[in-house]
């Protein structure tokens, strides 16, 4: 019994002593967020859309998934690529930025939505729909030191 306890303690000590990562601290901060869009009518009777914390979400609701980035280092970051798989229970809406790179095959091939095609059940090729997007990707050539930004894509809950 004593022997077993000793071994366990040694293992714990080893785990703590081992450096968890060899890489230096990353100059890039990446923060995911999600917001709920809700149409409201203001006091002047004008309808507008506001973004709120998604406390109650039901099918048909419109969500914005996004990522905030910040270069907290002293050097520019180059060839910055952000990828985000589209969760299964949501569907990208057609008003997604047409310049965002998307995939409709799980990330095997990429392009602008307007350039992508899918093969339907009858074997016919047709233009891909926003609802068929499986992954989204942004490519930025450089982020200066101290620069921040936000990347996002709109979805509806299926």
């Amino acid at each position: 019994m004593k022997l077993l306890l000793t071994i366990a303690s040694t293992a714990l000590f080893t785990a703590l002593a081992t450096p968890s990562a060899a890489e230096p601290p990353s100059p890039l901060e990446l923060t995911g967020f999600v917001e709920l869009e809700r149409a409201v009518t203001d006091e002047t009777g004008e309808r507008r859309v506001e973004r709120i914390e998604p406390k109650v979400v039901v099918p048909g609701d419109r969500l914005i998934f996004g990522t905030r980035f910040a270069n907290i280092g002293t050097q520019p970051i180059e060839r910055f690529v952000v990828s985000n798989p589209v969760p299964a229970s949501v569907s990208v809406t057609p008003d997604i930025d047409p310049d965002v790179l998307v995939s409709v095959d799980g990330g095997k091939s990429w392009g602008r939505l307007g350039e992508l095609e899918v093969v339907d059940a009858d074997g016919n090729r047709r233009a891909a729909q926003a609802s068929e997007i499986t992954n989204v990707r942004w490519v930025l050539s450089a982020i200066a030191s101290g620069e921040t930004g936000q990347l996002e894509f709109p979805v509806t809950v299926r």
């Binding site: 985000n84 229970s89 008003d95 930004g149 996002e152 809950v157």
Partner: peptide, 30 residues
């Protein structure tokens, strides 16, 4: 930069809605 432009898309309900209680998760990789 991927900022959503158009707003006010009608809340079309899917024929087979996502079951209540499901947790949708999203993670970005850079």
């Amino acid at each position: 930069m991927g900022i959503a432009g158009a707003i006010g898309v009608s809340a079309a309900k899917a024929a087979d809605p996502t079951p209540a209680g499901i947790v949708i998760e999203s993670t970005a990789q850079a």
